[in-house]
Structure formats: C-alpha cells, structure tokens
Simulated scan of single mutants.
Amino acid sequence: MKINVEMMPEYEIAYIRKIGSYGLGNIQTMEKLKTWAMANALLNDESIILGIPWDNPETTKPEDCRYDACLIVEKDQLINYNDVKKGKICEGEYAVFDIEHTAEAVEKAWHELFMELSIHGYKMDDSKPIMERYANKMVKNHKCEICVPIG
C-alpha cells in the first residue's frame, strides 16, 4: 500500500451519525449525507467527504458502533437539516494510505493498515479517529484514502 505522512488541519464538518454494526448501513448513511449536500449545493470538485468509524468492532458491541458520514464545510456554513450535525476534526499528523475506491480494496486496507504502520515505524494516536477520505478529485480517478492518526 502507498503511504504518505501529512499534517491535517482542523476541519469543520457537517455529519450524519449511524449507530449499529458497520457495513451496508455506513453506505446508506453516506448516501443520505451526499443527498443532503447536493440539495444544499455543497458538493463540487473541491468537496471532501469523510467516513469515520469511531469504535473498534472487536471491543465494542456491534449495536453500539458509531459511524459518521461527514462533509468538510466552511466555518460559517449554516446547517439546516435535522439529521445533520456540525462538528470539528482536530488537526494532527496522519499516515495516509492511498487505495483503490472499491469495497474490496477498502476492506483489505482495513485488515492490513496496522501491520503497515508497524512496518514503517509509526504508532497510532488513539486520541483521534481513523478516517476514510473521499476527495472528489480522487474518487473520479477511482481512488480514496484511509487516514490514520500517528503520534
């Protein structure tokens, strides 16, 4: 897997949270966010969508796992939809894995990324979430990224 290290800035986000086991419901939540964003003219070539699984399914009951589908927005962006909340992602250093934008590639990356971190001498920062990053420019080229906080 291709890996780069980058300093991510603090981001303002609009997000929809799903609680329950990870899988198909995550995709449905992402689609709900994209539908809302399109209806509010917030999606364009510069848009970045994040998928954030907050819990480790090996240590959290599936029915308690939290997943946020997020859109990076401007600081003063008004949010006018009941299911969409506003939040922030803290700045920090991240190991960024460049992968194919397919379900199989994303699943494979999730199984291999911790070993890859270790091979490259990085240690995960548990105080920040791992994020799947879908920049429209990359998605158009069938690519996406998994961003792992390191410290």
Score class of each variant (00 low, 15 high):
residue 65 C to P: 08
residue 75 K to F: 04
residue 130 I to N: 08
residue 68 D to Q: 11
residue 143 K to H: 11
residue 132 E to F: 02
residue 124 M to R: 15
residue 94 Y to C: 05
residue 82 N to A: 14
residue 118 S to L: 03
residue 73 V to D: 00
residue 119 I to L: 01
residue 67 Y to W: 10
residue 102 T to N: 12
residue 124 M to C: 06
residue 116 E to M: 03
residue 96 V to G: 07
residue 81 Y to A: 07
residue 67 Y to A: 08
residue 138 M to S: 07
residue 88 K to Y: 09
residue 143 K to I: 05
residue 105 A to F: 07
residue 69 A to T: 06
residue 139 V to Q: 01
residue 93 E to V: 08
residue 109 A to F: 01
residue 71 L to R: 00
residue 119 I to F: 03
residue 75 K to L: 04
residue 103 A to Y: 11
residue 114 F to G: 04
residue 141 N to A: 10
residue 81 Y to M: 09
residue 103 A to K: 13
residue 92 G to S: 13
residue 65 C to V: 12
residue 93 E to D: 13
residue 109 A to N: 15
residue 132 E to R: 06
residue 125 D to V: 07
residue 103 A to T: 11
residue 90 C to D: 13
residue 71 L to V: 01
residue 119 I to W: 00
residue 118 S to E: 12
residue 90 C to I: 02
residue 91 E to R: 14
residue 68 D to R: 08
residue 109 A to I: 03
residue 123 K to T: 13
residue 120 H to Y: 07
residue 92 G to K: 12
residue 72 I to V: 15
residue 77 Q to T: 09
residue 101 H to C: 14
residue 100 E to M: 05
residue 76 D to K: 14
residue 125 D to P: 09
residue 66 R to N: 14
residue 145 E to R: 07
residue 103 A to W: 08
residue 67 Y to P: 10
residue 91 E to G: 08
residue 133 R to W: 04
residue 71 L to P: 01
residue 131 M to F: 10
residue 144 C to A: 03
residue 92 G to F: 05
residue 143 K to E: 06
residue 77 Q to P: 13
residue 114 F to Y: 15
residue 144 C to E: 05
residue 146 I to M: 07
residue 90 C to L: 11
residue 95 A to P: 10
residue 70 C to F: 02
residue 145 E to D: 06
residue 93 E to N: 15
residue 103 A to D: 15
residue 133 R to L: 09
residue 83 D to K: 12
residue 102 T to M: 11
residue 121 G to C: 04
residue 84 V to M: 02
residue 70 C to I: 04
residue 102 T to Y: 13
residue 76 D to E: 15
residue 87 G to K: 07
residue 82 N to L: 13
residue 131 M to W: 12
residue 65 C to Q: 10
residue 98 D to W: 04
residue 142 H to Y: 05
residue 94 Y to I: 10
residue 135 A to V: 03
residue 139 V to A: 08
residue 85 K to G: 01
residue 73 V to K: 00
residue 118 S to V: 02
residue 102 T to C: 09
residue 109 A to V: 08
residue 129 P to Y: 12
residue 113 L to R: 10
residue 104 E to Q: 15
residue 96 V to Y: 07
residue 116 E to P: 00
residue 111 H to F: 10
residue 105 A to Y: 12
residue 91 E to F: 09
residue 78 L to Y: 08
residue 69 A to Y: 02
residue 137 K to G: 04
residue 106 V to D: 04
residue 137 K to D: 06
residue 142 H to T: 04
residue 101 H to R: 03
residue 100 E to Y: 05
residue 105 A to G: 08
residue 98 D to E: 14
residue 82 N to I: 06
residue 80 N to S: 09
residue 142 H to K: 10
residue 86 K to N: 02
residue 146 I to A: 02
